[in-house]
Amino acid sequence: MRRAFALVFLAFLLTLPLWLQDPYLLHILITTGIFTIAAMSLNLLLGYTGQLSLGHVAFFGIGAYVSALTTLGFDVDIGPWTFVHEPWPVMAGFVLAVLISGLCGYLIGKLSFRVRGAYFVIVTISFAEVVRLVALNWVDLTQGPLALNNIPAFALSVPGLGEHTLWGKVPNYYLVLAVAVAAYILIKRLVGSRIGRAMVALKENESLAVSVGIDVTRYLVLAAIISAALAGAAGSLYAHYVKIIDPEIFLFIYTVTMVIMVVAGGKGTLAGPVVGGLIFGTLPVLLRSYLGPEFQWIFYGLFMIFIVFVLPQGIVPAVEQRLFPSTREPPPEALATVEPAKGEPQ
């Protein structure tokens, strides 16, 4: 039943460009898809390991900058040395974006998982701010507030078939959809594996997990690496689709958008970020014809409070309980509820 639902939804998304010709709506769907991938990656930390990482946009932004700079080329002076980098193909940019974001996830994970609770939250926010200020001030490399403009469009190189540049909206739509599906399957596999069960155990009761021999930091860092790498992939897609990025990509509000997507959809569920992403990605566009952007944000804020107060598990688990009450085996992730933190020193 659940699987059939997912397949019908995928078929709907696959055929969408055939009957939806409006370029603007396609544009919105593409950006929504990119942010949904980012939200899915955040869910891995926020939902499955229970770590409220509020610096997630840093990995998204790093992915975007790495990919853009790889494909645009740059030359910077560091002390007496000059580094010149000639433009590389977009595929190389994408791969580097994933790798370097993942590496940053490793470093930040190693450092910040030494602290928990409020400290962890503030370290992650601080990290994103430092990265923003570096992007703003290292003008030689990043162009700072002048923005990195004219970033090349995504180009797929298939051995034997040559290179195909994705100019139009439709190919970009399918590219984002493909990456999103790949990310979904990757997360699904991961969560279903031994590693995933260890992560969930951590969230449920960290001290118990430790006592049964789970290496907490190792699993958290692993989650951080995968999460950051996926966010970097989303950032790369974003850079080559909108073709311009500037340091404001690192603003806290973007992390908050991802958090709203995850929390509203249902943290710790596979479908949660997808549902949350689609709702909060497309809603502003529908609202914008009638209301100023301020109202849209006020609505976001109210919705966030509403979700926490009324539907703490999020939309997906709530709907699932209604639709499939007979599901024999409830997914382990749906067990998560709001309860007083045990690890937090009182």
């Binding site: 603007y24 507030p145 002048l146 923005a147 403009n149 909108v242 500037d246 404001e248």
Partner: peptide, 10 residues
């Protein structure tokens, strides 16, 4: 903001 300028032009 430049990125926003490009987005609203679109």
């Amino acid at each position: 903001n430049p990125t926003e300028a490009a987005a609203v032009a679109e």
